[in-house]
Design a protein around this nucleic acid. Structure first.
Lengths: 391, 391
DNA sequence: TGGACATGGAGAAACGTATCTGCGACGGAT
DNA sequence: ATCCGTCGCAGATACGTTTCTCCATGTCCA
């Protein structure tokens, strides 16, 4: 018994701690090599079913759980996907702030889990402390900044990056976005048809793609139809500022008779402001806002909303990312550095290899028409986007 | 140049791929050993500042990023914390569904990042596929089931587990919860003082701690004051069922003149039902519901809500967990298996070592009194919980 | 009888880091 | 002069997998 104690393979008998069972313990207990154990558990190699099941049984009995760290080190795959949450402003760390992000994150998480990946929530601020401490197979970036240093570094180090929101000037593997321009134009047309003569906009001061594209679309439309732009901008991350801006908009001498609010709380803010000024909705003021919340179905009156369909976006983003991770190994920067011109309409082409601009996918939005934007009797849901490129 | 090519240390010259720079490359470039590089970058060992800064500079120049997987494998620490999201029901994967979870998750994420950890979102269903593929330093469990197999296995395998919600019958390292019993009793008292003669309850059919404790508190109160219980239960994960249950409650022959709803949407549902039956709030019906949403400040009338202060909970849970991870190494199950009796009131004692029941921390709730529960003129916010154990 | 081929499995080399041990040199104290 | 402590660093090992290579058997057919 003294000499035969060193039976656990090559490991010298250095104070066997009673830690978790490793693959070596399973091999020893099953009387096979670790190769056989690995193959048996992973369904690889050429093994008779009998050996396979025996090894599996022993592993089960020993409560064997493979070390994720070792596997990751060996295979280079962690099964983890980063989800960067933008901080609509500076300090405050806000996802789940707007229903859009919450829904989007939820759908993304669900889609990732469905394909065997887990999501790691990481801040968009480039605090390397956390970022470099986690092995990521890829990253989802929500609304990347124009020259996002984080995205650039990730891309440079070979990590696939798929963004929700068309990237401004940073290289990504792929991106997904709504056709915000078409959506805004659709709303403006809708309001015009409902009788609006002067349409105002409640927008944000930040420079993210959503705000920029939407505002530009509004300004372009104004110029085309010859209406003087009437808009107020405020920092979207500050909930109190929204109410103030809504009030300002309706207090102007050139008060609009219809307003589109870009952010989720704008609907209630505008409604409250309208009440303060004695304006009836929709009689004196037509109202539309972009929101995923269903509280606008129950307001008095119900408010027409634009839904960006965050669930579809989240699912698509994650699927594109995992396709990129599992697909072609994306050689040394071959698919980079081209101007972003390749936008296609939903559905996307998966497994996009080769060169060219980062593939972008446009997802349809949905305008949910309610009483606040109708002078007549309310109709039902209608969906609206134009084909892209039509401007 | 032919013989001197093998200068990169012990590695044989097997087709140097131009992958990311490793610690060996840095060592070679700086003309030191990998030991020195590791020590220099991690601030360990005894090195003159000059060597340290030189190594750091070389590492920077080479764009060196340490491999998280290798580090995790070596140190046994991943810097990752699991966040299990309960699926209030069966299939649907729902966090961010209720504002409580969203706020709680946000605070938890923020707290974790602040201490250098990242959160991994994982499903509470015990799909080992994902769970065993990620190295976790610890796990936050939201509202564990009574005999949660997942929690048991995690605990057994030595992973610290801190739960939001007092655990029923599974061992955890620590837990945090509101004093739901005291909160419900406070609300019932509040409604009684406002003139309620028969208080109804809108509750859930699931067996989670929150639902159970709250319902039991209600039933106990009824028995004590001699009121016949009037309640309806529905599956809380089904938003449509809530409206139906609210309607049922107000349609009963023994219709209550005050209702407390345990779930977020109950307020609007009850309000709508009251309208259908021609009941005025608060004149004919007093209303309170548990919610984190501020839409209830803007309803007509504004509805009194109980806030569970999810942000405080999320922060506390994560801090307790990280304390457990970084503190005493929690020997082989010494701190387990005792009946849960050790509940203290906020603030918790950190770094709890030794034996005894899993330390629990009770966080205060806040009753935000609005017009819906006042027969007289509305007062302002009052906070309410009793001291625990008083029953 | 002997090669070709399939079967079942073992050995060992990575993956990239942290850290334990040890070693030469140097300086001050005995 | 010798001894001892400290400084500055290098070597080697271990963390627990996956996987490439290779070997020992049969087995079948020529």
């Amino acid at each position: 018994m003294t000499a035969a104690a060193n039976q656990s393979g090559r490991r010298p008998p250095t104070s066997r701690r009673l830690e978790r069972a490793g693959i070596r313990d399973v091999a020893a207990a099953a009387g096979v090599s670790i190769t056989t154990v690995s193959d048996a558990l992973n369904g690889k190699g050429r093994l008779p079913d009998e050996t396979r099941s025996r090894v599996r049984e022993v592993a089960e009995r020993l409560g064997y759980r493979p070390s994720a760290a070792a596997r990751t080190l060996r295979t280079g795959r962690s099964g983890l996907i980063g989800l960067t949450v933008t901080t609509y402003g500076e300090e405050p760390f806000t996802f789940t702030e707007f229903a859009y992000f919450a829904e989007m994150a939820r759908a993304a998480t669900s889609a990732a889990l469905g394909r065997g990946y887990a999501l790691v929530v990481l801040p968009a601020s480039s605090r390397h402390d956390v970022w470099s401490n986690v092995a990521l197979d890829g990253t989802v970036v929500i609304d990347p900044a124009d020259q996002d240093p984080l995205v650039s570094e990730l891309y440079r180090s070979g990590v696939p990056v798929v963004s929700d929101g068309k990237p401004g000037n940073c290289p990504v593997t792929a991106w997904v976005d709504n056709d915000h321009e078409a959506a805004v134009l659709g709303i403006l047309d809708h309001l015009s048809e409902a009788g609006a003569r002067r349409i105002g906009l409640l927008t944000g001061t930040s420079t993210d793609t959503y705000t920029r594209l939407s505002t530009d679309a509004y300004l372009g439309w104004c110029e085309r139809v010859g209406q003087e732009p009437v808009y107020e901008a405020y920092p979207a991350h500050d909930p109190a500022a929204g109410a103030v801006a809504a009030d300002r908009l309706l207090a102007r001498p050139d008060r609009p008779d219809a307003v589109y609010g870009l952010f989720d709380p704008n609907g209630t803010d505008l409604l409250a402001a309208a009440r303060r000024y004695g304006l009836r909705v929709p009689d004196d003021l037509l109202l539309v806002c972009c929101s995923e919340s269903d509280v606008y179905a129950g307001t008095e009156p119900p408010i027409t909303t634009l839904s960006l369909k965050p669930r579809r976006i989240g699912t698509t983003v994650v699927n594109l990312l995992i396709d990129a991770i599992e697909g072609v190994d994306s050689g040394t920067g071959l698919t980079a550095d081209a101007p972003t011109a390749g936008a296609r309409l939903f559905p996307p082409r998966y497994r996009t290899a080769g060169t060219g601009p980062p593939p972008g996918t446009l997802m349809p939005t949905e305008l949910i028409v309610r009483a606040s934007s109708l002078r007549r009797s309310p109709r039902t849901t209608v969906s609206a986007p134009r084909t892209p490129g039509e401007v």
